[in-house]
Simulated assay, not measured.
Amino acid sequence: MASIVYLTDRKMIEYHRLNGSRTMNFWRPTSSRRILEFHQGDLLFFLSKGTERGITKEKGIVGYGRYQKSHSLPFKQMWKVYGTQNGYDQESELYDAIIKVSKNKQMPKSLSCLYLADIVYFQAPIYLSEIGVKISNMIESYFYLDKDDSLATAKILNKAKDVGVDRWSAVINDQDMGVMTFEIDYCKHIIAEAIDRLGNIYSETEIKRAYKVCQIMMTEMTEQGINVEMIKGSHSTFAVISNKKAEIYLPLVAAAKDLINKIQLLIGHITIMQAIINKKVTDYQLVVTIVVDAHLPAEYLELFKLAHVNYQIITDQTKIQEQIKE
């Protein structure tokens, strides 16, 4: 997963906030810097003009959306497809806004459309300097948030937990979906932060095997209609997170001679991880499951029970071996 911070028109974001928009077309001139390494489910944070403060005129982040898809459309077609999801009531208003930000003050032949869902608006702007991230005031379009600090996204969401989700947009959405979306995103990144703090317990070879085990189980769960995803920054941990419940899966891989030591190490790893997560996410049920790719002796499984850790066995060894050979 990646996160980017994008310089955003305040008027457009205010329109979406006041209307409680849960989706939007985040348009930009096609001549803008191309976005690479950005995939479905990644977060786009809104760095809003009009929130400047202090001598440095630092801009603040006012919310974020989850990237779904992108394509290019000419202006007329973009309005026909997205209408007010472009952030303006009238076609003429949108036209004027695009002309204003175009370098040559002319309408581009086509515009890049980033379709965002699960929009969350903050109660007040969050300034990156508050979490130790420095950016230039001369930024023209966007930058990758986690490029220099893998936990920057988690830090923003942690700060947003204190600031709160915008009350007006929460009122507009009767089911308070914005709050729920934010809480799930917050939980995901707290898990990522905990795993990052603990470090890795596997060798390079073991990481490759652990990743394959994760991919097999994630594929099986996806086929069952379960929304599962790899934890950001990790190649050996995935999770299923829904409202008020977080299920975390960690593979156990080791040579036979190292198995008991690896089990003890993994259980200790899980115990500390749970303590870190529970300290910040107090209202979620946390369930941790160890995934193994072979049947284990009963005395080993007893260790899992004593530690109150679930375990699940992947029995399709042929599939695992084929993936490892690739």
Results as ranks from 00 to 15, higher is better:
106 Q>R: 12
106 Q>F: 02
106 Q>K: 13
108 P>F: 05
109 K>Y: 11
112 S>M: 10
112 S>G: 12
113 C>A: 13
113 C>I: 15
115 Y>L: 13
117 A>K: 09
120 V>S: 04
121 Y>F: 15
121 Y>D: 02
123 Q>G: 11
125 P>H: 04
125 P>D: 01
126 I>R: 01
127 Y>W: 05
128 L>Q: 07
129 S>D: 05
130 E>F: 01
130 E>Y: 01
131 I>N: 03
132 G>K: 03
132 G>P: 04
132 G>D: 02
132 G>M: 10
136 S>D: 07
137 N>T: 04
138 M>K: 11
138 M>Q: 14
138 M>C: 07
141 S>A: 14
141 S>E: 04
142 Y>M: 03
142 Y>H: 15
143 F>S: 02
143 F>V: 05
143 F>H: 00
145 L>W: 01
146 D>F: 06
147 K>R: 13
147 K>D: 12
148 D>G: 11
148 D>A: 10
150 S>P: 06
151 L>E: 10
151 L>I: 10
153 T>P: 06
155 K>V: 11
155 K>A: 13
156 I>Y: 04
158 N>S: 15
159 K>M: 15
162 D>I: 13
162 D>Q: 15
166 D>T: 01
167 R>D: 03
170 A>G: 02
170 A>M: 14
170 A>D: 07
172 I>T: 09
173 N>D: 15
174 D>I: 10
175 Q>F: 12
175 Q>M: 11
176 D>A: 08
178 G>C: 04
179 V>R: 12
180 M>T: 14
181 T>R: 08
182 F>I: 05
183 E>N: 14
184 I>V: 13
185 D>M: 11
187 C>H: 01
187 C>F: 00
188 K>T: 00
188 K>D: 08
192 A>L: 01
194 A>L: 09
194 A>N: 08
195 I>W: 09
197 R>P: 01
197 R>N: 07
198 L>V: 12
198 L>D: 06
199 G>W: 02
199 G>V: 11
201 I>K: 03
203 S>R: 03
206 E>S: 12
206 E>M: 09
206 E>H: 02
208 K>A: 14
209 R>Y: 04
212 K>F: 08
212 K>P: 01
212 K>A: 15
212 K>R: 10
215 Q>V: 06
216 I>H: 05
217 M>Y: 10
217 M>P: 00
217 M>E: 13
217 M>F: 04
218 M>S: 00
219 T>L: 07
220 E>K: 09
220 E>H: 05
220 E>Q: 13
222 T>I: 11
224 Q>N: 12
224 Q>Y: 07
224 Q>F: 09
225 G>T: 03
